[in-house]
Design a protein around this nucleic acid. Structure first.
Lengths: 152, 152
DNA sequence: TTTGATATTGAGACTAAATATCATATAAGG
DNA sequence: CCTTATATGATATTTAGTCTCAATATCAAA
């Protein structure tokens, strides 16, 4: 459906290009949502995003937030991270595409890390399978030092 | 809550031990669901699992399927793979814990691969962060050779 | 084997995330 | 400016997943 991914200096510019090249319009709502998505660097969910938009006086409907988020995922500016507590959680990935999370099965704490070796593995697999790699994410599940001790 | 993960010769035995050691009961429903989960080696979703159970004359309620699946995820016999089309998709992982998927953003095809280097990265990160690693999964998003060409 | 405490099941009610609808508003090219 | 196709917002709708609770089954202990 929407096939091309564009790379520009920043997320806003990339998103504008993505919209225009796919015959869509640049609207204040879309720009406000994009801006807010990139304003924080933690995982977020739709409800939280709507709250933050409201607090800053940028109003957009729930429907528009969902619609714009779908576009951001499609353009690979944002990725779905995990589904938890009955809804999806996201993170923006423009500029730092390869993410890795350590998730503790005991306390549910998530640690985000960036690993060079992981990037190499991803690039290598891309080459091997002739894939044009856009982004990658590694989830490791296990027990953090704390919970491991409690377990014992 | 449920903390220990047990490793046994096969999934059924592991699940039995998991249940018993956590004060839960071994029931025909749970065993039938587990068996069906391990009967196929593709990704599956709840609806498909229920269909397959019905076709084989093993009846269990929708609620029990959801409940048992949650236990299987908790015991790391099964993992959530991705959320798509409005619901979660799963795969069993007992015996082959480290999985990697290449997912094409164009045609949605998913290729499952097993990579030694990935296993090393996961083990290495576990050591580094003092995590007791139970399982890991790597999702790589990009364009397969076909869709890359169409794009061009 | 029988009993009893307690965990599990199943049917369906319920919740809420996400989508669809459609009248109104707006972007953007002419 | 106009024009027209696209986007928005309010709300209805859908449906994945959870909850409830009476009936049933497990399993340890008598």
């Amino acid at each position: 459906m929407i096939l091309r991914i564009y790379r520009y200096k920043n997320g806003l510019e990339a998103f504008r290009e993505f919209l225009i090249h796919n015959g869509m319009r640049v609207t204040p709502e879309r720009e406000a949502i994009l801006e807010e998505v990139f304003a924080e660097h933690e995982h977020f969910d739709v409800e939280g995003l709507i709250m933050r938009l409201r607090q800053k006086g940028k109003r957009s409907s729930r429907a528009s937030v969902y619609r714009t988020l779908a576009l951001l995922v499609e353009s690979s500016l944002v990725q779905e991270v995990f589904y938890k507590d009955g809804h999806m959680h996201y993170e923006h990935i423009y500029g730092h595409e390869h993410h890795c999370h350590l998730r503790c099965l005991g306390c549910n704490k998530t640690i985000a890390i960036l690993d060079e070796a992981l990037a190499d593995v991803i690039e290598g697999l891309g080459m091997e399978y002739n894939f044009e790699v856009i982004s990658g994410r590694l989830e490791i599940f296990g027990f953090c030092p704390n919970c491991r001790d409690k377990n014992q």
